[in-house]
Design a protein around this nucleic acid. Sequence first.
DNA 1: CGAGCAATATTGTTCAACAACTTTGTTTCG
DNA 2: CGAAACAAAGTTGTTGAACAATATTGCTCG
Lengths: 218, 218
Amino acid sequence: MNQQGMLADALRQQIIDGAFAPGSRLSESAIAEHFGVARNTLREAFRVLSEQGLLEHVPHRGVSVASPSIADVIDIYRARRIIECTALLHSEPEHPAVQQMQESVLAAEAAAQDALLDDAETWRAVGSANMAFHVALVSLADSPRLARTYRDLAAELRLAFLKIDDPRSLHEPFVRKNRAVLDTFLTRGAAAGAEELERYLVQSERVVLGAFARMRLG
Amino acid sequence: MNQQGMLADALRQQIIDGAFAPGSRLSESAIAEHFGVARNTLREAFRVLSEQGLLEHVPHRGVSVASPSIADVIDIYRARRIIECTALLHSEPEHPAVQQMQESVLAAEAAAQDALLDDAETWRAVGSANMAFHVALVSLADSPRLARTYRDLAAELRLAFLKIDDPRSLHEPFVRKNRAVLDTFLTRGAAAGAEELERYLVQSERVVLGAFARMRLG
DNA sequence: CGAGCAATATTGTTCAACAACTTTGTTTCG
DNA sequence: CGAAACAAAGTTGTTGAACAATATTGCTCG
């Protein structure tokens, strides 16, 4: 891959990992120097990430890390429900992605097990495993376009999570629920699984919106 | 707006209008000169359009206009069905977007009326009105993200249409069907409308795939 | 304190150059 | 003749400097 592609990927990972706070401005010269690339090269990467919804670009004011509002969170969850539930509803348990879902559930459970003390790093790992579970779930649909759209949605949602202080309340409840969705899908079929997933997502949205409200975030 | 933003919009419009054949390569120096901008500026626009799926970027080989394969068409229609049918299913007939749907239907009927002779320009107008109808339909969902995703899907599909010689067979059958979907939605409710829309989209996909097969397109 | 204005900083864009790579064309050898 | 090897040419990738256009800051003045 060329420098630009690697740059966009590296920036993307750093943003998702919370290296820059949501809403914070990214200076072209500073970031370019930090990565050791020219401004023009960085600007191409900025365009890519802006299209993906991770950065917000305002003419003559530069780019900032996206900072999802309550309205954004609602929109993201609406799209999530449509994509995820549809994917699961029309799927067969023999699909290879089921294997990846299994592994993600186990990874999340293992990471949550380690979280005896509220360690931000640990909960980030739980969050990553959770995200991997849902990405795998969407890949059940075998649709590159839906997968790509979902990947961008998940990244945006991650930025919303970063605005919230209490990572445990965001991640812990869903370790068990991921397993429940998977088990229901495997034992009681796609329709039952999709129904459970829908409830899951409605509740997850409520948790996030509640946290936003408590913190008085826009 | 910026030069870059205007440039991306202009290029986008030209591509959708078929100024460059699907699959054709776009030389950086040639296009930059054509628009009177620097190569660096053009490259930023290229990144934007690549993310939107209109251009395909291969490192060290430049960008080409996307040329949807049969697999792409199938994927696009799968995503279309999910987004459009979900949008219509959960909608109320009082939504302001219904007005735009009405207008698009009338525009398509008026344009098709003029097409006594098989005029490519006329069928392009019918196609635009048809596209506007479906964009308006998706906007029933009041979801910026779904609307944006759908806009990109529709643009890609337009490139698939450009690969097909016979525009009449692609556009004419759907003028009446748009009206039928709208009427069903208004008189028999969202569920019946969504059902009719689903049939519509399945048939539309079949028409496109049939044309691809007849022309032996990948 | 607030409005207006100058100074400063940042982004937008261009240009020229060179590096990295692909494609093309030619030569050479089996 | 055909295929592999190699050289030449063309395109993209990236850089650094420069300047224009716009935004932000800080200051002066009323």
